[in-house]
Amino acid sequence: MKEAFSGIWIIAGQRDGELLRISFELIARGLELARKRNTSLTAVVFGAGMTNKELYRLIRCGADRVIVADFPELDKFDLELHAACLTALINEYKPEVVLAGATTTGRSLAPYAAMNVHAGLTADCTGLDIDPESGLLIQTRPAAGGNIMASIKSPSCRPQMATLRPHSCLPAEPLKGRGESSGVILRMKQLPPSPEGRNTVKHIGFCPLSEDFGIQDAEKVVVVGRGIKKADNLKLVFDFAKRIGAAVGATREVVDRGWMSYPHQIGLSGKTISPRLYMAFGVSGSIQHLAGMRTAETVVAVNTDPEAQIFSIADFGITGSLFDVIPALIGEINAGNATWIK
């Protein structure tokens, strides 16, 4: 029965008809698996008014096929409806592997569909590998509060599903020699019926974050801890963050004191980020905080305490007060001496 399932699928994400970065990260991961297993790569897209021009981007980057469910009802996210589409597609085409982003959408859609099709699903993977012979997917994720990594398999159920932590790899780029004829676009004919009538949710508005970008999508994140001492001092950090084009995150200590709002919280009970640059100011580096930033590419920490745990996972550490270091950083930027910012 397992043999009836084949091919690697990724669930692309879009907003207002434009594919999101995570879609191409998933293509990069999916392509690696498809090549190793010598099978095809399919990208599934849900949306309304998706143009072929946009969808061909997926094909140029390596997808052999794009399946798109394009209906006005799918313009905004409705969990039951999106999951009904995904369930119908999985039942029809029987993919061996289905990957989604570990985003608010992917982390909702994947489990809902996994229940429907009795698939094993591993949340928030940072690593993926596949056995070329058996097709068994080896999924790696942090466990037990980030203290430990677990590798997880779904030996008997198909498809094998996983959500992938955003920014855990680079997005795929268009491949040489691939054009529009390198793959096909299939459009789903109709929405699957609901056995008991649909209880759809109506979108009545959207209130964007005050920052320009979500903290999870940011390439650079500056994080403040309790070492900032009071809310008034945050100005200094925001000023610096703006100059280097970084989003600002916080530890739970800072959020609990009401100095910053919960969407900024990084860690076990907050958000997980994997930016290229993570800079901590006055953060001790508790296990719970580290669980949310461990996969950052470059970690810089500034702390008055030379023994602070944050230094054990930092690439570059400065012992000293953030109240001395940040003004010096800003001064060097103003002097044109921080050329890494470009």
Binding site: I138, I148, A150, S154, P155, S312, I313, F316, G320, G331
Partner: peptide, 28 residues
């Protein structure tokens, strides 16, 4: 459906280059 195949300790230590902002020329 899922099985934990194995668990292992992540490489949490990084080689941290340390600088001091409290000595010599300090922060700059």
């Amino acid at each position: 459906p899922t099985r934990v195949d194995k668990i292992f300790r992540p490489q949490i230590m990084r080689d941290c280059i340390m600088a001091s902002a409290t000595q010599g020329q300090g922060a700059l």
